[in-house]
């Protein structure tokens, strides 16, 4: 809390911007920019998803230094996947992990206890107690989130634990943003500005510290083009996503989508697996799908998965 004022002043101060831009046009203040040899950037380190099939869908996992969004309706497995990522990050790099602890930011601390209890039930790799390596914080508002992220710089630089912090999970970013803003033009504009600031900070940290940033997001229902006519602009944004028989899109719209690198969409639909025997109840199976909507390194693709007591696992379907 101590350095809140200083940090928010430095990002907000509009007077400092015009001056510096004018200077930089006249003479660059920085040392000469040097191109980075691309071969040094190969192979790109990634965080495994904790299941070989799911990891393969992402060509190894979530790329370090980028922001990944996991979106889906409630009970689609978002949190479960996040927990698995947290566990996976504890593993050493040669096992697909980051050898690192994680920072978990939640909209409020209350539901986290159940989340963390679930985590403690998961089989832990390497006999590390995962709860010792998670830093939990709650963010009530976008400003609060921003402040936490600035404070997290110190956590990245020097972790209080044995392992450095290299994974940031922001749980339900929409919940953090939703409460604050009215649906008018001015507020929407400042909301967009806040998206960019939060995303820029997250990406800056991801890149500077070699971290993976995961953000979970809710979905909103989409009115189909046949309903809304030409005005339904969402169908421009991409092929429609379906979950539970509804047409949905990740919340927070286009400007947020501009801020992320990878979008993963989890969907579920209940389907009748087998008719009930002699008039009994039909057995309903939940079919879950994980879809890579876009990613910098893999084409759009999808795969079915199941949630078991011991984690999230991809299914290999014979075609």
């Amino acid at each position: 809390m101590l350095f809140t004022a200083a940090s928010s002043a430095s990002i907000r101060d509009p007077d400092s911007i015009p001056q510096s831009s004018r200077d930089s046009f006249a003479k660059p203040q920085h040392p000469l920019p040097i191109p980075i040899p691309l071969q040094l950037l190969l192979p790109h380190p990634k965080l495994s998803l904790g299941c070989p099939i799911l990891s393969r869908l992402l060509a190894g996992g979530l790329p370090v230094g980028t922001i990944t969004e996991i979106s889906g309706e409630s009970a689609s497995g978002k949190s479960q996947l996040c927990l698995q990522l947290i566990l996976s990050s504890l593993l050493p790099p040669y096992l697909g992990g980051l050898g690192a602890s994680s920072l978990l930011i939640l909209p409020s601390l209350l539901p986290s206890s159940s989340l963390l209890r679930r985590l403690s039930l998961l089989p832990s790799p390497l006999h590390i107690s995962p709860l010792d390596h998670i830093f939990v914080a709650s963010a009530q508002s976008p400003e609060h989130l921003m402040m936490l992220l600035y404070q997290a710089d110190r956590l990245f630089e020097k972790s209080p634990g044995k392992m450095p912090v290299r994974l940031v999970v922001v749980d339900s970013i929409a919940a953090i943003f939703r409460s604050e803003f009215e649906n008018n033009l001015g507020d929407l504009k400042s909301r967009t500005g806040m998206f960019f600031r939060v995303a820029a900070k997250l990406k800056d940290q991801a890149r500077k510290f070699g971290a993976v940033v995961v953000v979970t997001n809710q979905v909103v229902d989409v009115m189909g083009p046949e309903v809304a006519g030409d005005g339904g602009n969402n169908h421009h944004i991409g092929p429609v996503l379906w979950s539970s028989g509804r047409m949905v899109a990740p919340a927070m719209g286009l400007s947020w989508a501009n801020c992320i690198n990878t979008r993963i969409f989890l969907s579920r639909s209940d389907e009748v697996a087998a008719m009930g025997v002699n008039g009994g109840e039909a057995i309903v199976r939940t079919k879950r799908t994980m879809e890579v909507v876009f990613a910098p390194h893999v084409p759009r693709s999808s795969c079915e998965f199941v949630i078991r007591k011991d984690g999230v696992f991809g299914l290999e379907l014979e075609r």
Binding site: S20, S21, S24, P28, Q29, H30, P33, I36, L38, Q39
Partner: peptide, 22 residues
């Protein structure tokens, strides 16, 4: 082919302008 791509990374628009000037 990778060697033939000069890759510059920038973190602020000041740097963006600086690189373009350079």
């Amino acid at each position: 082919f990778l060697d033939g791509i000069f890759y510059f990374r920038i973190c602020s628009y000041t740097e963006q302008i600086a690189v373009i000037n350079y």
